[in-house]
Design a protein around this nucleic acid. Structure first.
Lengths: 148, 148
DNA sequence: GTCTTCTGCCGCGATTCTCCCGGTAGCATC
DNA sequence: GATGCTACCGGGAGAATCGCGGCAGAAGAC
């Protein structure tokens, strides 16, 4: 499952984690490789599934979602289909992790207001008992892994 | 704080959330605008702080971090500096949210093995009591917000 | 030793994109 | 109707991308 990556691969990954929109020639300059060799490396990392995508990140508050919450969902049954349907419909749910422990799922939810959050919590409560924590701040800007 | 965005801005945001490395001309084609107008809009979204960055996402397993965990940290004191230092040093900590409720912080941690996770948990336990849940799977690929 | 194959890199030319500019349509304001 | 303003378009210089052939070094066969 794990792919082995040399220093240059890691340098490429670090750069693209930070600034995904730099040109391949600029990236090549930074990792000291020609543009064509860099292109080949990047394509390779993509097709190996090491790099899974490139995403713009937006400021949730500035686009109208000032409320962010972490929800833990304790889900008694085994019937996961309806939850999956909700995840697909409700774009306010930004992330959903299935975990060990008492709380089967941990979700990250964005809301336009506390009233909106209340509505979303109502929908989630259909599936089991929830524990909600509102986020004060992102202490860390989300980031990717470094070389082990 | 919130910026008001029209349909075209949202179309641009949606496209760049999905595929951040498309060219500005291609983006322009998709949102039915000339390349130069598109460029101007994107620059504007960046300088308004709506778009905060572009990041490559990697497959954690394929780069050597097969273990992902969500850690809740109950932090009794008020002295947050040491934790901030740990966050800066330890790149295995991918995300850190400060939240309401009993557990002051919620972290996302990547580890190379359970043994490695154990070490990381030991370091976090210095700050307070922790609750760790290992992640089975990401039910949802992390995504950004849609138009409210 | 040397022949073959393979891998990773480079350089080149055709196409495409980016960047910066001036120009213009629409819409207020005076 | 003159003036500014905003958002857009088009054009041209320069840069980036893409696909190709070619080359150096390593590995393996004999």
């Amino acid at each position: 499952m794990a792919v082995d990556l040399d220093d240059i691969d890691w340098a490429i990954i670090e750069q693209l984690q930070q600034e995904a929109r730099i040109s391949l020639s600029e990236l090549g300059r930074r990792v000291r490789l020609s543009a064509s060799a860099t292109t080949e490396r990047v394509r390779n990392l993509e097709s190996l599934g090491v790099i899974t995508g490139y995403h713009a990140v937006v400021d949730l508050t500035r686009v109208g979602y000032p409320v962010l919450a972490v929800v833990r969902l304790k889900y008694p049954g085994n019937r996961h289909q309806p939850l999956h349907r909700l995840l697909a419909e409700r774009r306010e749910i930004l992330e959903c992790l299935r975990t060990t422990g008492d709380d089967c799922y941990t979700l990250k939810v964005a809301a336009t207001s506390m009233a909106h959050l209340e509505v979303l919590m109502g929908e989630l409560a259909d599936f089991g008992s929830t524990t909600t924590s509102v986020v004060y701040s992102q202490t860390l800007p989300a980031r990717g892994p470094a070389r082990p």
